[in-house]
């Protein structure tokens, strides 16, 4: 209980209560997350059960339009799939890819940053040169290249489970640099402090010093980067899927849904594209705003 009380009483909570933008963003983000996790329970239809699809429902417009059917709130797509259910399942996949790639990116970047900052010398110079070169290219380009190469190397990379990890890997490899640079900077500062020198004097292993002593003191900024990176990762995943090199139509993410719906834009079935698009914007914008708020709230200098 005391922990909870301390949390409610903290600076962060105060800043949260006094930022209407943060509250709205948190509510929207929470709604997206709940919808994604609870998709099997919340979705009115199962969009992947081919037996339950009825082609007569195909292209049913949203329920409030003249020819809409009440069973399909946001309309149905070309195969009679409920758009709302597809969005819930799509958000689930988009979020899963986003979280997985952020975690992988964070682990990779933090480890490399720690090693570079603590070891110094040639190792530091090498890791940071690679980071510099990679940073001069846009992340989406790196992700596209990794994706393309893995696709050629693995013939079945375009299918369900493999496709998921290919995309996670592409996004993670395109995003580790920021973590590495930040962690390296903080590590350089921490490594000079007395407690690290004390640990060194009593003869602890360098790896133990890095991960037991230095790491806990450099994680603050990493969390902020991770929040903002989550929004970027979801956008990147959607972009890859939209370009046709991401999640396959059999396990569609929001980007895949938009890509599929894009073909029907010209024949007037706008709802197949617009609603997944709106869901994507809501998700990305709310996570982005939360990240901005967290960065400002944790950084007293900006107040």
């Amino acid at each position: 209980m005391t922990r909870l009380a301390a949390l409610v009483d903290s600076d962060l909570a105060w800043s949260f209560r006094h930022s209407p933008v943060a509250i709205v963003a948190a509510v929207v983000a929470l709604a997206c997350i709940v919808g994604a996790i609870g998709a099997p329970l919340l979705a009115p239809h199962d969009p992947f059960d081919l037996a339950k699809l009825d082609l007569l429902d195909a292209f049913a417009p949203p329920a409030w339009l003249a020819e809409g059917k009440t069973a399909f709130l946001f309309g149905a797509d070309d195969q009679g799939r409920d758009v709302l259910s597809a969005i819930l399942y799509g958000t689930r996949i988009s979020l899963a890819v986003g979280v997985a790639s952020v975690v992988l990116s964070m682990l990779l970047g933090t480890a490399l940053g720690l090693i570079a900052g603590y070891a110094g010398g040639v190792i530091d110079a090498f890791i940071m040169r690679v980071a510099d070169v990679q940073l001069s290219f846009p992340a989406i380009l790196i992700a596209l290249l990794v994706d393309g190469v893995t696709r050629i190397a693995l013939p079945d990379a375009a299918h369900g489970g493999t496709a998921f990890w290919v995309i996670v890997l592409s996004i993670a490899l395109s995003g580790w640099v920021q973590y590495a640079r930040t962690v390296r900077g903080s590590t350089l500062v921490e490594a000079r402090k007395e407690y690290v020198q004390a640990a060194r004097v009593i003869g602890r292993h360098p790896l133990a010093i890095m991960f037991h002593h230095v790491l806990p003191n450099v994680t603050g900024p990493v969390l902020v980067i991770a929040t903002i990176h989550l929004a970027t990762a979801i956008t990147t995943e959607a972009t890859l899927s939209f370009l046709g090199v991401g999640m396959p139509p059999t396990t569609p993410s929001l980007g895949t849904l938009i890509r599929v719906g894009n073909d029907f834009l010209f024949s007037g079935e706008w709802w197949i594209t617009v609603f997944p698009g709106a869901a994507l914007v809501a998700l990305v914008l709310s996570v982005n705003l939360l990240g901005d708020w967290l960065r400002d709230a944790l950084n007293p200098r900006l107040r």
């Binding site: 834009l265 706008w270 994507l280 990305v284």
Partner: peptide, 13 residues
């Protein structure tokens, strides 16, 4: 915040 491809789709629409 908007992904580039979504801006394009909205403009087309």
């Amino acid at each position: 915040s908007l992904p580039t491809f979504l801006i394009g789709i909205l403009l087309i629409l």
